[in-house]
Structure formats: structure tokens, C-alpha cells
């Protein structure tokens, strides 16, 4: 297997909220993203996916832990060093319209990364921007002079992708890039991402709450619950034989487009996500887990490898 491009160790993100309370958004997660792969990150909303992604980008930097990228720990870098490294990690966001400054023209938006980093002489910026727009499926002549509100959500997301990729980053973090789009447009954007990945040799972290989408694009998938990683496995394995009860519950919730199939949803014991301000002791999933026992409240289950490349953090996994 390839060497990791990005290694995350014990990443922790906490937010202070009024009344001296702390939100434990991400509590010590570790994973690697290998050169050239797409790692999917799934979990229900509020589980810390986006906080983790922003912490990787150091926007803002994590409360604790290490983020190793090409031999440097990003979490320990000062402003200047970090700024020089930033072009190598780019991100696209969920809301395609809020991602683009409504006061700027597309030409300015896509050229901004080049200008900010002074990567190209002025004369070469224009042709480069046009080529990039064409690569993401927009007609430069039609798009360059327009402002974001004149485009549809899918087109805005294409512009966002152009802006992120014009820097030729090593790692592209996609934070729910298609969740705000129509299903038909989702497919177009996913195809575009796949095409760009092949063309530019990108490594991607793909965050979504949509299991079908993640399965479609990812080589490996990590499942997050309430700030912790539950399971990390190759996409195939995870979807075929989930080991963590939470993953199994998620899988069973994927609707099957076949009315003759019986509904086979795993029953959870409590339906609400506990508050990240006051997470359960031990295993965080125990309050909703059908297999929970006394041990789950006492001990935090450490991630362990139950098969090659298949990690699970559970005292009583379903397989292995």
C-alpha cells in the first residue's frame, strides 16, 4: 500500500461555550490518508465530521493532537510556515453559494488563489483560469464576467472546485460537497471530482452523511460517532460486513429500492444523539447500542484491528 500523505494522531477539537462548558466536537481520532486514495468520513450531523476537517486545515487549529502532512506537523506550525503549506491542502464546502463571494466575478474568484500566493505572472493567470473553468465543465467565455448568484448550485460548486484545484493541491478535503445539490446534479459533481482526481492525482478526504454517496467514491471509509471513530475499513468490507453496531445501524437505514424486501432496520435503544457537551462515559455509542453491557460504560473501547486494514472500536464487535 502507498505511504500515508496525511497522518492524524489523537486529533481533539473542543469549543468553549458560555457558562464555562465545553463542546467535545472531536475527541482523539487517529487515521491515515494514503497517497492517491479517497477516504470517506461518514456520520450523522453533529458528530464532528466538519470540525475534524477544519482542524486538519488548521481553520481553526485543533485543541490537541497531531496532523502530519509531508513530514510536518501542521498543528505546530506558525502562521508563515502554515500559509506556505496551505496551497497543498484545499477544501470545498457544503453550501455552494456561500462558498463564493457574491461581490466578485468568477474570473476574480478562480484567480484569487494564484494572486494571493503569487504563483504565476499576471499575464499567465487569465489563460490558466480559463483552462481551469473548462476543466470543471464551465464555458469560460460565458462564466468569467458573471457573479456567483447568476449560477445554479451545481455550477457554483464547479466554480468552487476550480478555485480549489487551480493551486494543484496534494489533498482535497470535500466537506459534504453534494449534500446541498439535487440528485441529478450530485452525480455530475461526483463524476467531475472522480475525473479531476484521476487527472491531477489527487488524494481526497470525502465527508458526507450520505452512505450511498460515500460508498460510491471512497476506497476506505471511516465512521464517526459523537467525536470518535467507530470503524475504519475498506469500502467493500465495511458495507458488506460492518463490525461496529453503529455502522450496522447506519447500513440498515439505507433505503432499499425494493418494496418486496422486508424492512430490516436495527432498533436503537434511544433515538437522540447525546449532547457533545456531556458525552456518555466509556463507549459513546452505548446509550443507543442494542449490544451495550456494563463494560461499555466503564471502559473506552480502543480501536483494534480485526482484519487487515479493518479497525473497529467496540468491545463486542459483530464480526471478527
Amino acid at each position: 500500500m502507498n505511504a500515508p500523505l496525511l497522518s492524524v494522531r489523537e486529533l481533539t477539537v473542543e469549543f468553549r461555550v458560555p457558562d464555562e462548558r465545553t463542546v467535545h466536537a472531536v475527541s482523539g481520532i487517529s487515521f491515515d490518508i494514503r497517497q492517491g486514495e479517497t477516504l470517506g468520513l461518514v456520520g450523522e450531523s453533529g458528530c464532528g465530521k466538519s470540525s475534524a476537517a477544519r482542524a486538519l486545515m488548521q481553520l481553526p487549529p485543533p485543541t490537541g493532537g497531531e496532523v502530519w502532512f509531508q513530514g510536518t506537523d501542521l498543528a505546530r506550525q506558525s502562521g508563515a510556515v502554515l500559509r506556505r503549506l496551505r496551497p497543498k491542502l484545499q477544501m470545498i464546502f457544503q453550501d455552494p453559494i456561500a462558498s463564493l463571494n457574491p461581490r466578485h466575478r468568477v474570473a476574480e474568484i478562480v484567480a484569487a488563489p494564484l494572486r494571493v500566493n503569487r504563483l504565476l505572472p499576471r499575464a499567465q493567470i487569465g489563460p490558466r483560469v480559463a483552462a481551469m473553468l473548462e476543466a470543471v465543465g464551465l464555458e469560460p467565455a460565458l462564466a468569467l464576467d458573471r457573479r456567483p448568484h447568476e449560477f445554479s448550485g451545481g455550477q457554483c460548486q464547479r466554480i468552487s472546485i476550480a478555485r480549489a484545484l487551480i493551486l494543484e493541491p496534494a489533498l482535497l478535503i470535500c466537506d459534504e460537497p453534494v449534500s446541498a445539490l439535487d440528485v441529478s446534479v450530485q452525480a455530475q459533481i461526483l463524476n467531475l471530482l472522480r475525473e479531476m482526481k484521476g487527472r491531477m492525482g489527487l488524494t481526497m478526504l470525502f465527508i458526507s452523511h450520505d452512505l450511498a454517496v460515500v460508498k460510491n467514491v471512497s476506497d476506505r471509509v471511516a465512521v464517526m460517532y459523537l467525536g470518535r471513530l467507530c470503524e475504519l475499513a475498506p469500502s467493500e468490507t465495511l458495507y458488506r460486513a460492518p463490525a461496529h453496531p453503529y455502522t450496522a445501524a447506519l447500513m440498515s437505514a439505507i433505503p432499499v429500492p425494493d418494496p418486496t424486501q422486508p424492512v430490516r432496520q436495527v432498533q436503537l435503544t434511544a433515538s437522540d444523539l447525546p449532547s457533545p457537551m456531556d458525552p456518555p462515559s466509556g463507549c459513546r455509542f452505548r446509550t443507543r447500542c442494542p449490544r451495550a453491557e456494563a463494560r461499555c460504560a466503564a471502559e473506552v473501547p480502543p480501536p483494534r484491528e480485526i482484519a487487515t486494514g479493518h479497525q473497529v472500536a467496540c468491545h463486542f464487535p459483530l464480526t471478527g
Binding site: M91, S99, N101
Partner: peptide, 25 residues
């Protein structure tokens, strides 16, 4: 809004973000 985050991600300075991204809005 996310375009400010995007500007930070591309390595823009605070001054650039204030003048180019925020003030026009």
C-alpha cells in the same frame, strides 16, 4: 460564510480577507 474560510485556506492574509472579501459585502 464559507468564502472567508476558503480565502483563509488559500493562504490569504487577514488584510486581504478584510479588504477583498469582507468590505465589499
Amino acid at each position: 460564510r464559507e468564502f472567508v474560510l476558503a480565502a483563509k485556506a488559500m493562504g490569504a492574509s487577514d488584510l486581504y480577507i478584510l479588504v477583498r472579501e469582507i468590505v465589499p459585502n
